[in-house]
Every structure is written in C-alpha cells, then in structure tokens.
Computed example of a mutant assay.
Amino acid sequence: MEHADLIVIGAGQSGLATAALAPRHGFPRTLVLESAEAPGGAWPRYYDSLTLFSPARYSSLPGMRFPGDPDRYPARDEVVAYLRAYARHVDAEIHISAEVTSVTRHDGGWLVSTVDGRQYSARAVVAATGDYTGPHVPDVSGRAEFAGRALHAADYRSPELFAGQRVLVVGGGNSAIQIAAELGEVADTSLVTRRLIGWMNQRPLGRDVHWWFKHTRFDTAPLRRLLVKVPVSVLDDGHYRRALEEHGVDRREMFTRLTPDGAMWQDGTKESADTIVWATGYRHTFPYLEGSGALEADGRPRHHGGIATNVPALGFVGMEFQRSFSSKTLRGVGRDAAHVLARLR
C-alpha cells in the first residue's frame, strides 16, 4: 500500500490546481489519481469546436500563465495542451489509468482503492472530479419511445454526421448555443428551451465580462447564494446570435413529449426529428464516496465551501458555485483549492 499526505482524485483543472498548491498548505507528498490515460479531465472529450468563454489572461491555473495572446479565447485543444504541460509542472505524482472505486475511513485517515485493486492511504483526500462525469438528461415523457438518434452534448463532437437532418438541440446554455450554431450550417436545426435565452454581453464597454467580474469582485464568495439564483446566461459578443440567425436556427418552446418519430409541441402539433442533442448540463456524481457518509441520499456532497461537513479531512474542488461565480472555471479553481487545503490541515 502506498501512502501520501494528500490524495487528489482527478487530474483535470481542479485536481491539478489542488496538487500544485498542496505543498504550501502542509501536504509535502501528494498523489493524483486519474482514470483516463492522460491528465486533462473532461477537456479532451468536449466537442471539437469548443472555445473558452474567458480570455487566456483569465484562464490560468496557479503558477503558470496560459500561453499566447492573452486577449484571445483559447480552443479546446489549446486547453488540453496547457493542462498537460501544467501536469508536468506540478510537484506531485500523477497516476493515470487509476479509476477510483472507493474512499473509506482507515486508521484515522483514508483508504483509496482503484479498479485494478491498488490501494493508497492518506490523511486527507480531495475529490476533484467535478460534475462532468454525470451528464443529465431530463425525464421527458416519451423519451424511451423516440426512435431517432439521441445524444448528450457530452457525446457530441462535430456537425458532419448530422448533415441534412432535422435536429433539435435542447438547452439554453453556452454549449447549447455553440452546438446549435454550428449544426445550423449543415442541418435544419431548432433550439428548444424552457425560457427565453438570457444573453449576456461578452464585452460591455469594450472590456471582457471577466475583467468586470474581477475588478468589481462580483464573483467573490459572499455573493454565491445570490449567484445560484441567477438564470443561465449565454456570454456572446454577437457572434453566436448572428450565426443562429444566418443559419436559420429558431428557438422553440419545450416540447410536451417525444414520439417515435419526433416531438409533440404544446399546441398539439407533431413534428418529425432525426436527432435530439441534450445540452442539458450535468449532475454531481461521486460514486467512489458512496458509503463514506459524505453524500446526501441523492448523491450530492455534504459540504460547506468545499469542506465535507459529515466526515473529517475530505474536501471538494471543481463544483459549480462551490464558493463563487468562478468556481469550476480555470480561473476560479485555484482560489477554491487554496480555501479547501487551508482547512484540511
């Protein structure tokens, strides 16, 4: 059995930021356990055209600047390359292909087991797998009857496979807008939402919104209770709204049910559809913590600001609105990691 002061589960942006900061918070030996074959978290699995909604200057992890023009919006592959370079920079041992199956209390600390039977012990654990491992699809009436193709945004890569089809993209967030905009070039596409799309100006008064968030301290911890009540907004400088209009992507109210051939709308009309893309977000999922006492009955973690409230020496990093608006972002995970590590000592 291998021992460490701290075990971090996940080598995405949250886990890597946590590992980088661990030595200065009293954890000289840190192990990072990553289920994939390389660091990078969920980023390598995102759709091909994904670009950040934050400029490079606001997309850095602690101690390593995001390279290149600081005012550009990096693409997916740039983020993956940055994270893997950062992993080489981190003073921690990273074990890849190490899927964690259980985390249990052991001799006053934690025992962590992986799918291949390896075991590790540590006095503290940080769960940094976020929520991108749990794609959410709403329980819509008739969903099981639909005979066309249905996939979550987590499984969408590029528009070519959908050329000439009738596609419904369900969701009103950033990913839904990006996917619908590019599908509109090759397919008859509609964006299906429960409410009007909440557009937010990407560059008010010529400054990126992340500049305003930083300098007004809008995304700091005291505001987190307010922020979770704010409706989902789409950051856009006008590019995506123009793309939707140019490609004829219309917005439709949420259908009442699915049929074998497509969807039924609120006025009773039916429409055929070849594909439904569920851009409906994710839910927290920490299956390796089941039985640890750290989870609610529905699987959500019991925590305050990322510190487990029911068990000792367990933290979380990388959850949406964990402490602020920027939690779960490249810019915000370092701040949350420092907060958690300082309270795990």
Rank of each mutant, 00 (worst) to 15 (best):
M1S: 04
D116H: 01
L33E: 08
G68F: 04
D69R: 09
S327G: 01
W212E: 09
L6H: 00
G148I: 06
L111F: 03
A154M: 11
S102M: 03
P39T: 04
L196W: 11
A297I: 10
L83W: 09
R257Y: 09
V249C: 14
E245W: 13
A294V: 09
H304Q: 13
G134Q: 12
R302T: 13
P260S: 05
H152P: 01
G26D: 01
K229Q: 11
T133Y: 08
L226P: 00
A221R: 15
E245K: 15
H25L: 00
R118C: 00
T280I: 08
T220A: 10
R323L: 11
P55S: 06
A42R: 08
R343P: 02
W265D: 13
T309G: 07
H284G: 14
G63N: 03
Y240N: 14
L33A: 02
H339W: 15
H25V: 02
Y288V: 04
W199H: 12
T193L: 13
G184H: 02
L330Y: 09
A81G: 10
L21R: 10
N310S: 13
A313C: 00
A56G: 02
H239Y: 15
L151K: 05
Q13L: 09
G41Q: 07
H239G: 12
V125G: 00
G12A: 14
W199S: 03
V192D: 11
A19K: 03
G306Y: 14
R76Q: 09
S158G: 14
L16C: 01
V340F: 13
V192W: 13
A19F: 10
P138N: 08
G172R: 02
E99S: 12
S121L: 07
G68R: 03
S190I: 07
A36F: 04
V8A: 06
R57Q: 05
R302A: 10
G198N: 13
T193M: 05
E253M: 13
L83D: 09
P138R: 07
L161C: 07
A124T: 04
G130A: 11
G117M: 06
S97D: 06
G172M: 01
V340D: 11
S97Y: 04
S121Y: 01
A144H: 14
S49K: 05
G262S: 02
P260M: 05
R252A: 15
Q165G: 04
S141T: 14
V333S: 08
G184F: 06
A150M: 12
A147D: 07
L52K: 07
S121N: 06
A150H: 07
G248E: 12
A163R: 15
I179E: 02
V232Y: 03
E296S: 12
D250S: 12
Y120P: 00
K270A: 15
Q165H: 09
A221C: 03
T18H: 10
D155G: 12
L161I: 04
A22R: 01
R149Q: 03
R72W: 03
F27C: 08
